[in-house]
Every structure is written in structure tokens, then in C-alpha cells.
């Protein structure tokens, strides 16, 4: 059985198993699992607007998932997607509240460019330090996460505090910078097209481009790739910067598209979810797309389940986490099994 096929099978079985456990948990709420899951699917994909909402939910997950996938794919650990997302989102929002009267098309372009640049820069720093001075990038990115989050929280409570009521947010950004909502009932906005382009570029880069192959070799067999003439240092920094750019784009789209302002809790763990997704599918970009779609369906449907059946929406999050853990356990077990078979054979 090929490695890829086996992994796919493990993911499918694990998700089914988690759904079974989730179904049993639903019995505690006196809801039949079949009804529960029916409502979940209908709530996520039942009509056009629900599908829109599900896709809107998918955008930040898929971008941060790919961000993590691309850096880990190249053997450098970017744990800092959360910080890159926050800082980029904040800077874009700060720009949006400070400057007015820029022509719309230019402002949109500028906003996206600045967001991507900030995310990339915040990732470049640990990447550069890792390559140049061998500073542990895992530790650095964790610290940079906290710095970015505390900094943005400080700004939204201090200099950029909103004058429009609710606390912990900036003012609404200039209208010229808005990605318009496609429909007032959902968060989906024209920014999704930017995300689609980014995803397509990354899939091409990781699966079909020479650079992607070099990265994979760096992770799987560093000596071979050095022998083959791969510039390790440059590739690592590049992977890190692209990773940061994606995380930055996720934050930018949240500001320019979803909320039209920066909020303190703008990413309730999107990047962490993205990270475990990416690791679960072993940094395969197509896998990230599929699993983040599944995640978005579950979360959107979970809201509906709470509204109609009274099951707390957190239940679907728990089902999802269980699925992730089952997948991980499945990989370990299958590795152990195949090692044993090799030893015996």
C-alpha cells in the first residue's frame, strides 16, 4: 500500500471514529446523532448563504494552514503565524484609519501589499536569525507571537483606541479599503478571490515548482540536497518569509474583508487550528485544503446545532480535536506496524 494512500485511509477512519464518539456525546443531550449531523451538514451547506459563511470561515484557516505547511515543509518551524497575522492585521487597520481619500483600487492593492509585507518581515526576522546565528526559531517565534499580540492589544487600548463604542478595537477603516461583503447575511467578501489566488500559487509552488522539491529534499534528506547544490540558507529564509506572508494575508483579509477594523480577538486560534491541520496531513497542501474545508463545515454546522438542538457548539470543536488526535495515533501505530513488518520480513 502506498504511503500516501495509507495516510489518506488513516485520516478518513479517524474522522469517522471521532464522529461516532461525537454522536455518542450527542445522546447526552437527548439528540439522535443522525439528526444532529443532518442539522450540522444543512447548517453548513444547506443554502447559498450558509455555503458563503462556511467559505468565509475557511479562508483564514486555509491560509494559516498553508503558512505552517510551507515552512515545516522546508524544515524550518514557523510557530509564529499567530503573531504575523496579528501584526499584519493591525498595521493594515492602522493604515486604514489614518489615511483617507486614496482611490479604492489603489488602496485595496496597497492594503494587501502592506499586510503581506508586514507578515513576511515579522517572519523574516526569526528566519534570518536562525540561518545566520543558529538561534532556535521555535522559541523565537513563540516569543514574537506574544510581543505582537501584546503590542496590538496595547495599541487598541491606547493610541488606536476606537471612538465608536466597543472597546478593544480600532475604528472602522476607510471605505476605500473595504473588500465588500458578497451578501449581507454572510462574512464572505471579495477578498476571497485574493485568497484563492494565493492558495493556487502556493499549491503550484509546493507541488510543481522546482523550489518546492528542493524544500522537500531539505527536510527529508539535508545532505543529499546540499550535494545537489541547494542553497540551504536562502531556501529556509524564503520559506519562512512566504509563510509569514500567508499568515499576514490571513490577517489582512480579516481586517479588510470580514470586520473592516482590527479587533483584539481577531484570530481566535485560527493559526493554531491551521497548524494542527497542516501537521495532521503531513504538510500536503491539498490535504490542508480538504481538512480546512471539513473543519469549516463542522464549525459552521455547530452553530446551527446549538441554535436548533441546544447542543453547545463547542461539541464540534471537541469532535474535531478528537479526530486530530486519532489521526496522530493512527500514524504512530501504522509506523510502528510497518517497522515491525520490515524487521520480520
Amino acid at each position: 500500500m502506498s504511503e500516501k494512500y495509507r495516510r489518506f485511509l488513516i485520516v478518513v477512519i479517524s474522522f469517522l471514529l471521532a464522529l461516532v464518539v461525537g454522536g455518542l456525546l450527542m445522546l447526552f443531550y437527548k439528540v439522535s446523532p443522525i439528526d444532529g449531523y443532518k442539522i450540522m451538514i444543512l447548517g453548513a451547506l444547506g443554502n447559498k448563504y450558509m455555503i458563503y459563511s462556511t467559505f468565509a470561515r475557511m479562508v483564514p484557516i486555509i491560509l494559516t494552514g498553508l503558512a505552517v505547511a510551507i515552512s515545516f515543509h522546508a524544515g524550518i518551524w514557523n510557530i509564529g503565524a499567530q503573531g504575523q497575522l496579528y501584526l499584519a492585521a493591525f498595521v493594515v487597520a492602522a493604515m486604514g484609519v489614518s489615511f483617507h481619500g486614496v482611490p479604492t483600487a489603489m488602496y485595496l492593492l496597497l492594503g494587501v501589499a502592506v499586510g503581506i509585507a508586514v507578515g513576511g518581515l515579522w517572519a523574516w526576522l526569526p528566519g534570518y536569525l536562525r540561518v545566520k546565528y543558529n538561534v532556535n526559531e521555535v522559541v523565537l517565534t513563540i516569543m514574537l507571537n506574544s510581543i505582537a499580540i501584546y503590542f496590538t492589544t496595547y495599541m487598541t487600548n491606547g493610541p488606536f483606541r476606537t471612538s465608536q463604542g466597543s472597546l478593544g478595537a480600532t475604528n472602522v477603516i476607510d471605505k476605500g479599503m473595504w473588500f465588500r461583503h458578497i451578501n449581507p447575511l454572510s462574512n464572505l467578501n471579495t477578498g476571497v478571490f485574493v485568497a484563492i489566488v494565493a492558495v493556487a500559487l502556493i499549491v503550484y509552488l509546493m507541488l510543481f515548482a522546482k523550489r518546492g522539491y528542493e524544500w522537500k529534499m531539505m527536510r527529508l534528506n539535508p545532505r543529499f540536497s546540499i550535494y545537489g547544490g541547494v542553497s540551504f540558507k536562502r531556501n529556509m529564509i524564503l520559506a519562512m518569509v512566504i509563510s509569514g506572508m500567508l499568515a499576514g494575508l490571513a490577517g489582512t483579509l480579516l481586517v479588510m474583508g470580514d470586520y473592516h477594523r482590527f479587533l483584539n480577538g481577531i484570530s481566535p486560534g485560527y493559526s493554531w487550528t491551521g497548524m494542527i491541520l497542516a501537521m495532521m496531513v503531513n504538510y500536503d497542501p491539498i490535504g490542508v485544503i480538504i481538512t480546512s474545508f471539513m473543519y469549516a463545515v463542522m464549525i459552521s454546522g455547530g452553530l446551527k446545532m446549538e441554535l436548533i438542538l441546544g447542543i453547545p457548539q463547542e461539541l464540534v470543536q471537541i469532535i474535531f480535536v478528537l479526530a486530530v488526535m486519532f489521526v496522530t495515533a493512527g500514524y504512530s501505530l501504522s509506523n510502528k506496524l510497518s517497522n515491525r513488518m520490515q524487521e520480520e520480513g
Partner: peptide
């Protein structure tokens, strides 16, 4: 997961953090 199955500490650790947050809210409600 991490000692016996040698699973990746980041996946399991983050999964558990998310689990804790959801589980406590779920129990609060229930």
C-alpha cells in the same frame, strides 16, 4: 500520545489546549 506513541508534541499539545477551552465552555453550558 507523546511518550508511548511518540506523537508530535505540537500537534497533541495544541489539540489539548483547544480541547480544554472547548470542553470547559461546553461543561459550563451543560
Amino acid at each position: 500520545f507523546c511518550v508511548n506513541l511518540r506523537a508530535n508534541i505540537w500537534v497533541i499539545g495544541m489539540a489539548l489546549n483547544i480541547l480544554a477551552s472547548s470542553l470547559t465552555i461546553l461543561l459550563l453550558k451543560s
